[in-house]
Computed example of a mutant assay.
Amino acid sequence: MSGVLNADRGRGMMKIYHASSIALAALAPAAAAMPEGQLAIDVALGAAMPVHSHIAMNFIISDYVPKGARGPTRAATLALTAATAVGLFKLNTQGDGITRTVKSLWKA
């Protein structure tokens, strides 16, 4: 649990962070190029986005939050990451999916 709360620490978390960066760099243009949403791409985006964001937010917490407040801030970040992951999962399984939802923002 400590690794998830202190997600900006450790070699393993850095590997996950870099892998999620590469995945998002490939998945975002692929999703944009597809005429219709693809469930496999949406599921991969739904997994990579919260993981990448969670680790990145922990870097920000380490840099800008006072030491005494880091524990509760990291716990709140973990709760928001979990809520985001659940929301994206629900969007992918019960809604239009991430790709179609984002594309609908540009439709009249």
Rank of each mutant, 00 (worst) to 15 (best):
M1L: 11
M1V: 04
S2N: 15
N6L: 08
D8N: 15
G10D: 05
G10A: 07
G10V: 05
R11Q: 10
M13T: 04
M13L: 13
K15M: 12
I16L: 15
Y17L: 09
H18D: 05
H18L: 15
A19W: 08
S20R: 01
S20G: 05
S20N: 06
S21R: 02
L24N: 06
A25I: 14
L27A: 14
A28M: 15
P29A: 11
A30P: 04
A30F: 13
A31I: 10
A31L: 08
M34D: 05
Q38F: 09
A40H: 10
I41Y: 02
V43N: 02
V43R: 03
A44K: 01
G46Y: 13
G46N: 12
G46C: 10
A47H: 03
M49G: 04
M49T: 12
V51K: 00
H52F: 15
H54D: 03
H54N: 03
M57C: 12
M57L: 13
I60D: 03
Y64I: 07
Y64P: 01
Y64R: 12
V65T: 10
P66N: 06
K67F: 08
G68H: 11
G71V: 12
P72R: 09
T73I: 12
R74I: 07
A75Q: 12
T77V: 10
L78C: 10
A79C: 10
L80F: 15
T81M: 10
A82I: 13
T84D: 00
A85W: 00
V86P: 00
V86Y: 01
L88T: 04
F89E: 03
K90W: 12
N92K: 08
N92F: 09
Q94G: 05
Q94A: 14
Q94T: 13
Q94Y: 10
D96M: 02
T99G: 02
R100H: 04
R100I: 00
T101R: 13
V102S: 02
V102L: 15
K103D: 05
L105H: 11
K107R: 15
A108D: 07
